[in-house]
Design a binder for these strands. Structure first.
Length: 491
DNA sequence: CGCTTTTGACCCGCGC
DNA sequence: GCGCGGGTCAAAAGCG
């Protein structure tokens, strides 16, 4: 990690260069009598100190020299202050660099996972093809339809890669998934996705709709399958639970309501919104109040933005996207892996917070859920305002001081935590047996409290999630925005 | 007038 | 086949 090295170098700066007496005091405190190998150095320093002391004593004979000495001391103190200020500035910049690097790493890791799984599947495909050539009649109708060109196909673009991924997903289950995930009805998920996509293609869509929903002008079956797979990837959802009295949390994007329904099991209506920041942007979100606690607003995002995102929405988009893509690829074997891979956005979790990041691979959609509503110990209940008037409805950016904080994997505590919290209804989708939950800290100071303390946090989080998965399709446009965003946080 | 919201209708998958 | 439920459409209404 370059920034860490940088930080270490910075920390090793000699703040007291030019202030011999101060350095001497520090050395005396730090070294004491233990470091005998530095003895001669100390003697030399002490000699300097003695000389200085003598000068001070002799200078006391004239007030002019005394005041000069005071000025000199003042100058040195100012220098120290300057150096410390510079150090703080560098540290702040270092934090920003770490954040940027973290985002790049997350993107890189997601791509790497994707590539590895693709290569594994490609190998399997090649092995499988030799047998398949002998028993062509036994091949699934789907593959026969496209001819035999699939096997030799190179993974030259995402569409092809996605096609292979789709074709191979059932096989990947046995390769990639951990025991706790091995029971996943992954093929069922894929089938469900395909069904839904088939369904959606029968609905007329406005011009500019993204390929997965576009009328199939190019009726190549390969393209169709690739589109379906990409559609499946896009169908990953991110759900955010946060307390707000507003009907909708502003997240930096423009939304247009296109429907409202009373969903079963919740008397509160569910509102459907579509992103209108660009014509044809397929991103949608559902907003619904929690039936049990109507102060909680559940916002579920789905799809990729087809346009550059506002800065407010960029802060954690890449990491959340990585979590979703990892969930979809099934390449992350366990919650530990997710936590250790920096896929869970570290900056997203406040120190001591209970932001509950929940990944659900169960039907109908793979879902990442962020619970920002718990606040067991930051404030007593009677002091905590469930409907925070401070909750932002206008967002700016994610404050840098909230980023780069460590999180700890205590997923083992999840079961206990969830049962004690009575939080089984946490996720607005069905939690199946393949549900991976990542609980950053058992010390559950609520992120909701953090919302109150720092209004930018939730808004930026929600905004970031609104942009989930958008990078996959808009690398060129969004990457520059990402780096710029991280840099702008402190400026 | 143009955009957004409302709301009943419609489509489709799924379970029985 | 039928009903249910989720999601979407699109005409009408509302709004600035």
């Amino acid at each position: 990690m370059e920034p860490l090295d940088h930080k270490r170098v910075v920390n090793e700066m000699d703040f007291f260069a030019g202030d011999l007496s101060l350095r001497q005091h520090v050395k005396d405190d730090d070294d004491g009598d233990h470091h005998h190998h530095h003895h001669h150095v100390l003697q030399q320093d002490q000699a300097d100190d003695v000389n200085t002391g003598l000068n001070l004593l002799t200078s006391n004979t004239t007030t002019e020299k005394s005041s000069q000495n005071l000025k000199e001391k003042q100058r040195v103190i100012n220098q120290v202050a300057d150096v410390r200020a510079e150090l703080e500035r560098i540290n702040a910049e270092n934090q920003r660099l770490k954040l940027a690097l973290n985002q790049v790493n997350n993107n890189y890791y997601a791509l790497q996972m994707h590539l590895v799984s693709l290569m594994q599947r490609h190998r399997n495909r090649v092995a499988e093809s030799s047998e398949a050539n002998k028993t062509e009649m036994d091949r699934p109708m789907e593959d026969k339809t496209h001819g035999g060109g699939i096997v030799a196909r190179q993974f030259m673009d995402l569409g092809e890669a996605a096609k292979v991924e789709k074709d191979e997903i059932p096989e990947s289950l046995s390769e990639d998934r951990s025991p706790e995930l091995s029971g996943s009805p992954r093929n069922t998920i894929v089938e469900s996705m395909e069904r839904r996509e088939k369904n959606s293609t029968s609905v007329p869509h406005p011009p500019g709709w993204l390929p997965n929903k576009a009328p199939k002008l190019n009726t190549s079956m390969d393209n169709e399958q690739a589109q379906q797979t990409m559609a499946m990837i896009r169908k990953a959802r991110v759900s955010v639970r946060a307390r707000s009295e507003a009907s909708m949390i502003s997240d930096g994007c423009q939304w247009r309501k296109y429907g409202q329904k009373i969903a079963k099991g919740n008397p509160c209506p569910r509102a459907y919104y579509r992103c209108t920041m660009a014509t044809g942007c397929p991103v949608r979100k559902q907003v619904q109040r929690c039936a049990e606690d109507r102060t909680i607003l559940i916002t579920t995002y789905e799809g990729n933005h087809s346009h550059p995102l506002p800065q407010a929405a960029m802060a954690m988009a890449s990491t959340t996207s990585a979590a979703a893509s990892t969930l979809l690829s099934g390449s992350m074997p366990s919650a530990d892996g997710i936590m250790n891979s920096s896929i869970v956005p570290k900056g997203m979790i406040l120190p001591g917070s209970t932001s509950l990041v929940t990944l659900s691979a169960s039907a109908p959609f793979p879902t990442v859920t962020l619970d920002l509503t718990h606040n067991p110990n930051q404030r007593p209940l009677n002091q905590f305002h469930p409907i925070s008037p401070h909750l932002p409805h206008n967002i700016t950016s994610l404050p840098p001081h909230l980023l780069g904080q460590p999180i700890y994997n205590q997923s083992k505590l999840l079961g206990t935590f969830l049962s004690s919290q009575g939080n089984n209804e946490l996720v607005p989708v069905h939690l199946g047996q393949n549900h991976v939950q990542v609980h950053p800290m058992a010390n559950t100071a609520a992120t909701a409290a953090a919302i109150t303390a720092d209004p930018n946090f939730t808004a930026a989080l929600v905004a970031a999630i609104a942009s989930i998965v958008g990078h996959r399709d808009n690398n060129g446009k969004n990457n520059s925005t990402t780096s710029r965003t991280t840099g702008d946080n402190s400026t």
